[in-house]
Simulated assay, not measured.
Amino acid sequence: MTRYVLALDLVDKPDLIEEYEAYHREVWPEIKESILRSGVHHMAIYRFGNRLMMVMEVSDNFSFEQKANADAESEHVQEWEKLMWKYQVAIPGAKAGEKWVLMDKIFEING
């Protein structure tokens, strides 16, 4: 299993951040199904201020490209993504149109 960590910013307005969190307390079933079907076994999103961090644990055959292709074909995923852009801001350094940006691991310790 592989772990990925990604970052994204939110529009820095408390009312919009609360709306974003409310959507994530009740993520649409089709979105959950899409995530799991793509090979994601575990996903968690953490927030500090307007900065988000997503941790994904995925199967060995998971592919960001395959997930993006499947998402592009899903009406529900496209509707969700369009809605989420109301709340999201590309993180500094992101490419045009890029949302979640893959973070580089710079330290790890195991006991």
Rank of each mutant, 00 (worst) to 15 (best):
D15N: 12
R47E: 13
I45W: 02
L52W: 03
M43S: 08
D60P: 06
E81R: 04
Q88A: 10
K95R: 15
L8T: 04
A94C: 13
Q66S: 08
S63A: 01
F48K: 14
A72E: 04
L36R: 09
A94R: 11
E98Q: 15
I109Y: 12
K99Y: 09
S74R: 01
V89T: 11
Y46H: 10
R3L: 04
K86V: 04
D12R: 10
K86Y: 04
Y4M: 07
E30A: 05
E21G: 13
S59C: 09
L16Y: 14
Q78D: 00
A22K: 15
M84S: 03
K13H: 11
F62G: 00
V5Q: 04
H41I: 12
P29V: 04
P29R: 07
I45P: 00
L36Q: 08
E57R: 03
K105N: 10
G111K: 11
N61Q: 04
E108W: 05
K82V: 03
A90L: 10
V101W: 06
E75T: 07
I35R: 03
A68N: 06
L6K: 08
V89Q: 11
K13Q: 14
A94V: 14
N61V: 05
G111H: 10
S59N: 12
E81A: 05
K99N: 12
K105A: 09
D15I: 14
M103Y: 08
L36Y: 06
A22R: 15
M1S: 10
V58Y: 01
Y23W: 12
E30D: 06
E73A: 09
I91N: 08
A94E: 11
G39C: 03
A94L: 13
A72V: 00
I35D: 01
H24E: 09
T2L: 06
R51P: 11
S74C: 01
V40S: 05
A90K: 11
V5M: 05
D60G: 10
I17W: 10
V55W: 00
G111F: 11
V58M: 03
K67C: 04
L6R: 06
M43F: 05
K32L: 12
K95D: 15
Y20I: 09
E79R: 07
M53V: 13
W100V: 05
V40C: 09
S63H: 02
Y20T: 08
T2H: 07
E81Q: 04
V55Y: 00
Q66H: 07
E57W: 02
R3Y: 02
V58N: 02
L102R: 12
D71V: 01
E18N: 11
R51G: 13
G39D: 03
V101N: 07
I45D: 00
P92V: 09
D71S: 01
M84Q: 07
N69A: 10
V27I: 15
M43R: 09
K13A: 12
D104L: 07
M54W: 01
Y46A: 07
K105V: 10
K67M: 09
H41T: 11
N50P: 09
A68E: 07
N61P: 01
I45K: 02
Y23H: 15
A72W: 00
W80H: 07
E65V: 05
R51Q: 15
H24Y: 11
E79G: 01
M84W: 02
Y23M: 14
M1N: 06
E108I: 05
M54F: 00
